[in-house]
Amino acid sequence: MSATEELTARLRGTVLPAVLTPMDTAGSVDLRALRRYAERIAAERVGGVAVWAHTGRGLYLAPTDRRHVMTVWRDVLDVPVVAGAGVPRSERAATLPTAEDATVAMAVEAAGLGADAVMVYPMARYDGLPDGVDRAVALHERVAAESGLPVLGFFLHAGAGGYAYPPELVRRLLALPSTTGIKIATLDRAVDCQDAVRAAQGSGRLVVTGEDRMFGPSLMWGADTALVGIAAARVGLTAAVLDAWSAGDAGAFLRASDRLDRFAEATFLAPIEGYVRRMMWAAVWEGIIPEEAAHDPYGPPLPDAERHAVVACLEALATADEGAAV
């Protein structure tokens, strides 16, 4: 069995939180807070974690901070670590070949630091190019060849700097021997999500949902694994939905999906880039990140009313849990 096949089997049916990166207001990583947070996540029942992902602002971290982040997670966890690799969408001035080279270099760096797989961010500038599909496939092949790691394709919605992978691209990526699966994060575009899932089915590779606002439906459409930002603060809430679906327990699935949907409604809303800050607020309420390290300098400012809404949702869910336990 190849390394890609082994990783695929190990991750299937599990939750991988796209973890946060505790930072101060200036964007400096709080390493003490990061270690405590990593230890709390490691104590949960996770199949792995995704670092340098969108939720952790991985593409914006300074190289030294990026290395520190990977080192902490690799030191704390004994489950697979998937590392994001790409360039920020703000780097418009970089030529496309330069951006491709930077993505490959980041993947090679992740391999050197002990990552188990690489999640390749989509190049939004491929969208509309006559050879966009060919270039995307070639990039994934380069990442795998130069890093030596299994690769997870990343179908990301345009609002976060991605683009809609056509079914042909999904099928071609999953036909590569180095590809462990495809992560689908279309936000609210149900048809795009369904098309990608359908294109992936029958490949034997992971169909990974990143659909925080369509989590339950994405499982019903065929996703079998989860890599989501919503699990950055609420692993148990997320895992309960996947576990109930996998067990075929319809009643438990509906109840768990309802609870997760209520939390997603309070955290994944316009402006969507604000979700990282909202997840930070949730992590503070959960007691897994301290207030002074719960900042997202790369997202939009949000009114206090939004924090009150996140906290009110968490308190309501906690009250419901207490009532159910009586």
Rank of each mutant, 00 (worst) to 15 (best):
S90L: 14
R262W: 12
D192A: 01
A312V: 03
R259P: 10
M280E: 04
S257Y: 06
R205L: 06
G161I: 02
G58T: 10
A240W: 05
M214F: 11
H157I: 10
R189M: 09
P88Y: 08
A50V: 12
A320K: 05
A318S: 14
E39R: 15
D258T: 14
A252N: 09
T4P: 03
V170Y: 02
H68C: 00
A270F: 15
T25F: 11
A33R: 06
P297C: 00
R213W: 10
R57K: 12
R89K: 13
F268H: 06
G47I: 11
R262A: 11
R125L: 13
R277A: 11
V310N: 00
H308M: 04
A293N: 07
Y37E: 07
R74H: 14
A62N: 13
L96P: 08
A138V: 01
V19Q: 05
T225A: 02
D296K: 04
R198Y: 09
V120Q: 07
E109V: 00
A53T: 15
V51A: 13
A83W: 04
L219V: 08
R307W: 02
R205V: 03
V276T: 08
D101W: 12
F155V: 03
R205E: 05
A144W: 01
A264C: 10
I272W: 15
E146R: 12
R32Y: 14
R66A: 05
R35I: 04
A250Y: 14
S218C: 08
A185Y: 13
A232N: 12
T238H: 14
V49Q: 06
A33W: 08
M123Y: 04
M279K: 09
Y298H: 15
V76C: 06
W281T: 03
P122S: 14
K183G: 05
A244I: 01
L302N: 03
D212F: 08
A42N: 15
H157V: 13
G229V: 07
W281L: 01
G161K: 06
D75T: 14
L31S: 09
T267W: 08
L61R: 09
A124D: 14
V208A: 06
A3L: 14
T21K: 02
G27R: 12
D24W: 10
F215I: 10
L77E: 08
A26E: 15
G153K: 00
I289S: 04
M119A: 09
E306P: 07
P22W: 03
A93Q: 14
A138W: 05
R307Q: 11
G13E: 03
L31W: 13
A38K: 08
W52N: 10
R74G: 03
G248Q: 10
A247P: 09
D30V: 04
P80I: 00
M23P: 12
V208P: 08
A62V: 09
A38L: 07
P271S: 00
P166K: 05
R40Y: 11
P17A: 01
E39I: 05
V276M: 03
G161Q: 04
P300W: 09
G181I: 07
F154C: 04
S2P: 15
L113E: 15
H54D: 05
P80G: 02
V108T: 11
G323M: 14
V235R: 06
G202C: 05
A105Y: 04
A102M: 14
A99F: 04
E100S: 00
V151H: 01
G132R: 05
L317V: 01
L129S: 02
G162C: 05
Y121K: 06
A252K: 10
H54P: 03
A138Y: 03
D75K: 14
A239W: 11
L34V: 12
G27S: 11
